[in-house]
Design a protein around this nucleic acid. Structure first.
Lengths: 335, 335
DNA sequence: CTGTTAGCGCGTTCAG
DNA sequence: CTGAACGCGCTAACAG
């Protein structure tokens, strides 16, 4: 391995001069710069970030901890993070917890050891433990996508309650009275908020949401399938369903169609999260689309701001609106 | 920030003793271990991996450079890598090049600076430059998914030629004579190999593949759409199409259906890469499924082997078979 | 079983 | 504009 010393020797200067040329810091004459740069090229020298970071206490690395990398919502969000961080000269380490708190804890440990400069966290559960742990180590965190009660922390998320409210109002305006809600884990804030939004719309319309019509599961396609099967057994059978995320939505569609029913003719279906154009054959679902890329971008900007001096400003909560996209799955007015 | 010295002082031992307890290296009595571990807990001490790696020359980190993280084939492959590396105590840094050689070069630079222990590389183009660059720095590489001509290197890939051959034979056995090939970039080995497999099957059947029926594009849904549109304008119109990957497949399906034609009744469609169960509403495509997870796993094992002493054994090429899964899109025997 | 010494590769500090 | 000395936090090598 060639070091800064080898370069210095070949260029006939002191190591620190090489350092200055590499980092464009301090002063150096054009000639020494050329000599140094030639030596670097000749030796194929690559600076050792480890040593640099050990000294400078900055790794220029951010950690992005999320719950499901196979979900296109998170993939898009991750791109927003990556692009923004990359523009600022930061590297991003991605970690996947599969909604497990113990996985989250394990990654936290590893990442703190790696001295990452800051954390972008989609919390596996709505508890502030991880946030405290990071804080104790003195590093900034921005929470993404979800609320964490009782935690003083920056948050960038989408307005789940409002999005669910609007989708449910749409269903009501189309004449639906029996609506089933296929939700995610009640411990995850987005799932809770989306149920709350549905409930508000129903109550406003004087149609109190029967508790038996709120079904909790997980944010997976398999769970969506199961929840929809259950919903179809309710009496009277729901004429519409609200799916709390994209995977639940797909699973529900499959369950409904397998039963011999049609969407939207027999059962209208709306849900959270849009699917990328390449993923389904036709844009079909009426959805509340979250600005995933923008969420990633804004969270990263906030974190970078904290890193460059803004450590003490008050915590911020950025809430972006969901966009309602009406397609086929919500159907025409009924009854 | 608390260091190993703080822990040592509190525990009343030397720093090296703390190091030994943390790393379970060397000898220490149960009592000193307890004293050290208590001190660690009390101080909330987190070891600094940077310093450790600087000294030990190992980061326990692998780099996985791939071309499209939104493609489920690569997502699955990445999971295979992550799981295997994690079991061995290694962290993985994921990087996305979007098939761009300059992005690849940029990442290489950053990762070498970070002193990752080894590289898993899906080369953006079929040129050996990146591999030489890594080698020059003295680190092991395993190439994934694609061949790189003129490079002495470990490779783990799927038998694209054979998979394409089998799919094409299937089409021929169903009575198809006019087959269009919707391929990826000719510079990418998988695309070239899949075209070669199609050609072999056609020639064997005495049906030489007309060059006008081989269309090159990119491994994207948009490109698949365009290629299929072009293919539909050929005369005589192809009765079947072969798509060189999953995204091309989806794009082609959309193009065919938009033209008012049905798959498989009017045009049969087969392609490379299976889609995960959650992604499409019904398993529909007849495909050559690559063992993506297993490819990631084997490549990682190979790399880890190189890292633990096996640096000098001869280069290996692991070629895994694709599995032909017959579903609806290939249709019944025709005329 | 435990400790001392030294140095990994770099950049901060201060002195020319 | 350039350089020498020192130390970041940790562990290899060598005592004892």
């Amino acid at each position: 391995m060639t070091t800064i010393h080898d370069v210095a020797k070949l260029a006939g200067v002191a190591p620190i001069t090489v350092s200055r040329v590499i980092n464009r810091s301090g002063y150096f004459s054009p000639e020494t710069r050329d000599r140094v740069e030639n030596a670097i090229r000749e030796l194929g020298y690559v600076p050792n970030t480890l040593a640099r970071s050990l000294r400078s206490k900055r790794t220029n690395t951010l950690a992005l901890i999320l719950t499901d990398i196979t979900n296109p919502f998170f993939t898009t969000l991750a791109r927003g993070v990556e692009d923004t961080a990359s523009d600022a000269g930061f590297t991003v380490i991605f970690c996947n917890t599969d909604e497990s708190e113990s996985e989250e804890a394990k990654y936290l440990q590893v990442l703190m050891q790696k001295q990452v400069d800051g954390f972008l966290l989609v919390p596996a559960q709505s508890r502030p433990g991880s946030i405290h742990q990071i804080r104790q180590h003195g590093e900034p965190v921005v929470v993404l996508d979800r609320r964490v009660p009782d935690a003083e922390v920056d948050v960038v998320r989408c307005d789940s309650e409002e999005g669910a409210y609007k989708l449910t109002r749409l269903l009501i305006s189309l004449g639906h009275r029996q609506i089933a809600v296929l939700s995610g884990p009640p411990t995850v804030s987005t799932a809770a908020d989306r149920v709350a939004g549905c409930r508000r719309a129903m109550q406003e319309a004087g149609l109190p949401l029967d508790e038996s019509h709120i079904l909790y599961g997980e944010y997976t396609q398999a769970s969506g399938y199961m929840l929809a099967r259950k919903a179809l057994e309710l009496y009277p059978r729901p004429t519409a369903m609200f799916a709390a995320n994209n995977f639940i939505n797909i699973g529900a569609l499959r369950a409904i169609q397998e039963t011999g029913l049609e969407v939207p003719e027999d059962v209208a279906l709306v849900g959270f999260d849009d699917l990328p154009p390449g993923m389904l054959m036709f844009p079909f679902f009426t959805v509340a689309a979250q600005p995933a890329y923008e969420m990633g971008r804004q969270a990263t900007l906030l974190l970078l701001e904290r890193l460059s001096g803004g450590a003490d400003s008050p915590f911020r909560e950025v809430i972006l609106p969901a966009e309602i996209i009406i397609r086929h799955s919500s159907g025409d007015p009924i009854g």
